[in-house]
């Protein structure tokens, strides 16, 4: 999942970013309200972890700005202010949950998992990226509109990669999430199944030419889907650090 941490305390923001990355999320960090709104418009993260006390535009203003515009983005509010009225205000402005400082990183991570779990339950059953479309309701997969038969494991692997929306999936993540295996197990099952998927998803143009590959290798890391994401050209892995983005940490 794509997560944005909005926290002006750089030290705290960095730990939150690191902690949420341990959960397998792709996490960016910005330090003020304006940057948060800008990021949300450009990237529409799955989850925003939002501190209330922020420079430029405070957390409540960010919530008000986002309200109703970004149904895709869930918001977890962090606050050091203990007034119940303020937490109610946040929830009424569209926040999914509030956590009072000081808090435990374990609790924050568990609450984020709960939000994302709920989100997943009500999510659109159809996932698509580039030429690939998956309908999780009727368990079907299509490449350029042509149905592709997948085994249960291949389906689970492709679903994980589609949910990443073009971000890199490491072998460790795939092994632990799809196969429930330890990264130390020394197996190459991920690479084998990626090859199965590549073969099955290798479409053929009507003129007989081979279609663009659907999965590319991120050397030393893992794999990612390639193609076009929601009208935007999918960025290469190295483009993850965008110098023009207002953020504390790239």
């Amino acid at each position: 999942m794509k997560v944005l941490v909005v926290e002006d305390d750089r030290a705290l923001g960095l730990f939150l970013q690191k902690g949420l990355r341990l959960e397998g999320h792709s996490v960016d960090l910005v330090g003020d309200g304006d940057a948060a709104v800008e990021y949300a418009i450009e990237h529409q993260p799955d989850l925003m972890v939002l501190d209330l006390s922020l420079p430029c535009r405070d957390g409540l203003e960010v919530l008000a700005e986002l309200q109703g515009r970004f149904a895709r983005t869930s918001v977890m509010v962090l606050t050091g202010r203990s007034q119940v009225e303020e937490r109610i205000k946040c929830l009424n402005l569209g926040a999914d949950d509030c956590l009072l400082k000081p808090f435990s990183l374990y609790e924050l991570m568990a609450r984020c998992r709960a939000i994302l779990r709920r989100k997943e339950q009500f999510a659109n059953p159809v996932l698509h990226f580039g030429a690939v479309e998956m309908d999780r309701m009727n368990r079907s997969v299509r490449r350029d509109g042509v149905e592709v038969e997948l085994t249960a494991k291949e389906f689970a692997l492709l679903e994980f990669m589609l949910r990443r929306n073009g971000d890199c999936c490491t072998r460790t993540e795939l092994l632990s999430d799809v196969w429930k295996m330890s990264p130390d197990s020394g197996t190459n099952v991920v690479d084998v199944y990626i090859n199965y998927l590549r073969r099955k998803l290798a479409g053929v143009h009507p003129d007989g030419q081979q279609s663009e590959p659907v999965i590319e290798t991120v050397r030393g890391e893992g794999y990612r889907l390639c193609g076009v994401r929601k009208g935007i050209r999918s960025a290469p892995a190295s483009d993850a650090l965008r110098p023009n983005m207002p953020r504390l940490v790239a």
């Binding site: 305390d9 030290a11 705290l12 730990f15 939150l16 690191k18 902690g19 341990l22 050091g80 202010r81 203990s82 400082k101 000081p102 808090f103 435990s104 990183l105 374990y106 924050l108």
Partner: peptide, 25 residues
């Protein structure tokens, strides 16, 4: 007093999260 308690929350949260992160890794 409420303001000062609020100011204490920031480093306290950072301390707790930092130690927990160390233990997690």
């Amino acid at each position: 007093l409420a303001k000062q308690l609020h100011d204490l929350c920031q480093p306290l949260t950072a301390l707790q999260c930092r130690l927990e992160l160390g233990r997690m890794c």
